[in-house]
Design a protein around this nucleic acid. Structure first.
Length: 183
DNA sequence: TTGCTAACCTAATCACCTC
DNA sequence: GAGGTGATTAGGTTAGCAA
């Protein structure tokens, strides 16, 4: 897939969720779940194109497909661990569990933000690093990117903000210790 | 009330770009 | 190559909803 592709408009399923911070819970139909499970059995790590295709097929957003696969993998891995522990008890097998080999499919094209878009995002982050679905939708509309990209941007920003704060604390501590040694 | 699971989180890492 | 940053992952928590 080329990276010049335009974003598929993420249908706002949240029109009725003005009341709270979280996106309203998606209820997949049996048919939708069957399609998702079949896809998961083919590959638990679908690429962006596959997720887009699935989203189209079951009429939902690609970001919902991504979350569904994340949750499914998590549950699947817990299940596998339990079964592996059972096998170990039964056979005392010393082999390592099979490495997850997942030939990576295509990634989503990297979003590049303009300085104006970044300014809007940074201002919003300063006001509230944990925007709810409504704020994210509003921001997304304002800067013209999908809400899922806004969510990822905030995740990365928070993560790096925490790292930076920790580094600053460590440096301050180190500085104090150096000063005490020099007394 | 409980179990399931979508939504969301952090932290680590990958991947790509710019300098 | 190093640093910055968007995308993806594992693994954990929160909360809506059906039974």
């Amino acid at each position: 897939m080329s990276c010049g592709a335009s974003y598929q408009t993420e249908k706002s399923e949240t029109e009725t969720t003005a009341r709270n911070q979280r996106r309203s819970r998606t209820k997949f139909t049996e048919d939708q779940l069957n399609i998702l499970i079949k896809a998961f059995n083919q590959t638990p790590y679908p690429g962006y194109a596959t997720k887009q295709k699935l989203a189209l097929e079951i009429n939902t957003e690609e970001s919902r497909i991504q979350i569904w696969f994340q949750n499914r993998r998590a549950r699947h891995q817990v299940q596998e661990r339990l079964e592996h522990e059972k096998d170990l008890e039964a056979s005392q097998d010393q082999d390592h569990p099979e490495e997850k080999i997942h030939g990576r499919e295509d990634r989503r094209c990297r979003t590049s933000y303009t300085s104006s878009q970044l300014h809007t995002l940074i201002t919003a982050f300063t006001n509230n690093p944990y925007p709810g679905i409504d704020s994210r939708e509003q921001l997304a509309k304002q800067i013209g990117v999908p809400e899922s990209r806004v969510q990822i941007w905030f995740q990365n920003r928070r993560s790096r903000f925490h790292v930076q704060k920790k580094r600053e604390r460590d440096e301050l501590l180190q500085h104090k210790q150096d000063q005490e040694r020099n007394l």
